[in-house]
Design a protein around this nucleic acid. Structure first.
Lengths: 236, 236
DNA sequence: ACAAAAGTGTTGTACGTACACCCATGA
DNA sequence: TCATGGGTGTACGTACAACACTTTTGT
């Protein structure tokens, strides 16, 4: 449904159900109109019907020889040119009337590090403030809403916030990520203790020197990822 | 993939992807070999290839005119004859090699009350101890494993346990449900307070009289369902 | 009377929150 | 030296686990 870049390998038979894979790709960035840091995501301008001229989630038809997750990864590469630092299935949307022809969309959501996102890398791709989207094609507004809910939820009990940061980061930077996602301020002192006691961070010997007292750099402890997706490790 | 009861409305074209909907249906029951109470689920004996003679999750092909959830509900009716007291999408399984032909299965999981489940209502349907399954068709063992994980997880922060009980129940009965799902004993005193303070139960004037001191009957408070599935209310 | 489950009280620990305070650096 | 963010200490409130205890029934 959300395919925008290549020809359709699936037959468009009137009474067949087609399967699409779309991806909600989150990263942090400076918001267009304010200069706050916030959650942003890329959308693709539809160049054909249905919903020509509207913005839609990146995605494509499922190929018979391609796994669901592989399709999602491809989507990500096509729009951001980056590999996901986090990728998880979100939901399968299958209302009969969500598209003129019957389409079931398996939607993934992904995080990528904000390090180096090409500003206008790909034609017809634009990054939007997740909290201020225009009207999107199909049921994509609903989908993004749900993805945002999952992101905010998951940030509470999981360590995914690291997926938005480079390899080494200060606690203040990590806290900013949480604050942007939850859109509320957190107490620096308490934040420090929580995350230190969680055992998910490894302090390095390096410091971020800047305007004031240097802050220690931390990196993510790979060994801790438990109790996240349950028995599904590399599911597809 | 798991269709067992009606002819396939989907074309079996070699290079098309077909969409199936399967459902993991949980309830509580007396386990076959012990006489403990535990989680049980119905499976359907496959009467044709692939995997003829193996047990599989109830399910069927997605019809073009039928929503995902509707297909799941139908499945439930066909195997248990009951309406679900809880129904939620679990995951979309789409590995390329999970079936001889390419099949994407949208899997739901459901709870039904144990009140009155016909013991051998439907031909080729049998109820199994969820913790001691034989080898199932396709990747269905994995799927059940994941569904169980979700059930146990969700019982911790949600009120779904009520979905396994009749309209009125004692706190001891509710506690038994939790104990069966989590397979560990809970302190009756603490359990009482937790659930009382959660505001999800309404005490009635009736009592369950039995072998000892009568226990007050409670019923579920409909008004509390919040923070469960997020923005997806009647999604399909 | 006694066993056993229903139901109440009390205590200790863990953890989140609020906030006062010290430390180290650039300007 | 001062402003500012880095980092530590402490006190309070809530939530939960453990467990002693009282109450009410059937037998």
């Amino acid at each position: 449904m959300t395919r925008t870049t290549s020809p359709s390998p699936q037959p468009a038979t009137a009474d067949a159900t087609r399967v699409a894979v779309s991806t909600v790709i989150f990263t942090l960035g400076r918001l267009p109109d304010s200069d706050e840091i916030g959650v942003v995501l890329p959308l693709v301008l539809r160049t054909r019907d249905p919903h020509e001229g509207q913005w839609a989630l990146p995605g494509g038809w499922l190929d018979v020889t391609e796994s669901l997750e592989a399709t999602a990864s491809r989507t990500l590469a096509e729009t951001s040119g980056l590999a996901p630092s986090y990728l998880e299935q979100l939901y399968a949307f299958g209302a009969v009337d969500r598209s003129p022809t019957r389409v079931v969309s398996i939607v993934y959501w992904a995080l990528i590090r904000g390090d180096e996102i090409p500003d206008h890398s790909v034609e017809n791709v634009r990054w939007f403030d997740a909290a201020a989207l225009p009207q999107l094609a199909f049921d994509h507004n609903e989908i993004v809403e749900y993805a945002l809910w999952r992101l905010r939820n998951k940030v509470g009990y999981s360590r995914i916030a690291h997926g938005l940061l480079p390899g080494e980061f200060t606690l203040a930077e990590l806290r900013e990520v949480y604050e942007a996602i939850l859109s509320r301020r957190l107490d620096p002192a308490n934040f420090r203790r929580q995350v230190e006691n969680s055992g998910t961070l490894i302090p390095t010997d390096r410091f971020r020197t800047g305007s004031h007292r240097p802050a220690r750099l931390y990196r993510y402890n790979q060994d801790v990822e438990l109790s996240d997706r349950g028995p599904l490790g590399a599911r597809t």
